[in-house]
Design a binder for these strands. Structure first.
Lengths: 132, 132
DNA sequence: GTTCGTGCAAACCTTTTGCAGCCCA
DNA sequence: TGGGCTGCAAAAGGTTTGCACGAAC
């Protein structure tokens, strides 16, 4: 991981996994990572994928995105503030540009201090709408 | 199940489980439901709790709330549209009144059709702020 | 009495762990 | 060469399913 970060070894598998997560159009699950690696003939043991994902999480190179299904998905931490759209039909997740939340105060009327927020939209994605 | 909803039988266990979810101060997990039933000497098989929760979900009497930890929690659907505040310090979850999202179109600029949305705020809750 | 629901245990699925062999530094 | 990394398989944890008995109608 970037320049031997904290004594970690740079291996083919780790590069591949980080690359898959970084180049996906939205957050991906462990299964999707495994599938994508298989698709390009770079099959990797599932245990390695889990271990690598946890390693990347620990080093904050990726973060976990949790939507309405039970699946944990991962995305790079170095992308700008954004939110997600989750298709109810094909189950894919898309990144959305910008932020739809107009919240100017950092303290809510209930008195809680807000440090961050997450928004998830659900519905039917463009592709599913067009093919129906 | 409200008045024999769809041919479902009204049983002691189902009433208890719905009651536990409805009267909890916030969304509860399956484990919490099991614990609460045990506490009042109404222990129920874990399989029954899972089946009942899924039944209640199917009939939209409850809905699933997913925060940033891996736990699935459930709350009644018959409370008004609201969002959640999750305290990073004490881990409590608060319901927030109203909606901070000003979204007038139902189709995003990316072309996806929005049917619903969820917002979760994170930060420090009022109580934690005051006691620090 | 018939049908559906419950509880138990087994099955299942996802994630983690142990271990022997391999590979990077 | 040595210690971390991988892959396999087994284990662990959480959820679902099959089945026989019991409860609801």
């Amino acid at each position: 991981m970037k320049e031997n970060h904290i004594g970690l070894r740079k291996t083919k598998q780790r590069e591949l996994i980080l690359n898959v997560i970084s180049s996906a159009p939205g957050p991906v699950s462990v299964n999707e990572i495994a599938q994508l690696l298989e698709d390009c003939d770079k099959s990797t043991g599932i245990a390695t994928i889990y271990r690598t994902v946890n390693l990347l999480l620990d080093n904050e190179l990726i973060q976990c995105v949790r939507l309405h299904d039970a699946v944990q998905r991962y995305e790079p931490t170095n992308i700008p503030h954004h939110h997600h759209f989750h298709c109810s039909q094909c189950d894919k997740v898309y990144d959305l540009e910008g932020c739809y939340l107009h919240l100017h105060e950092s303290t809510l009327k209930e008195g809680h201090q807000v440090n961050s927020h997450e928004i998830t939209f659900r519905g039917i994605c463009k592709d599913c709408k067009e093919s129906s």
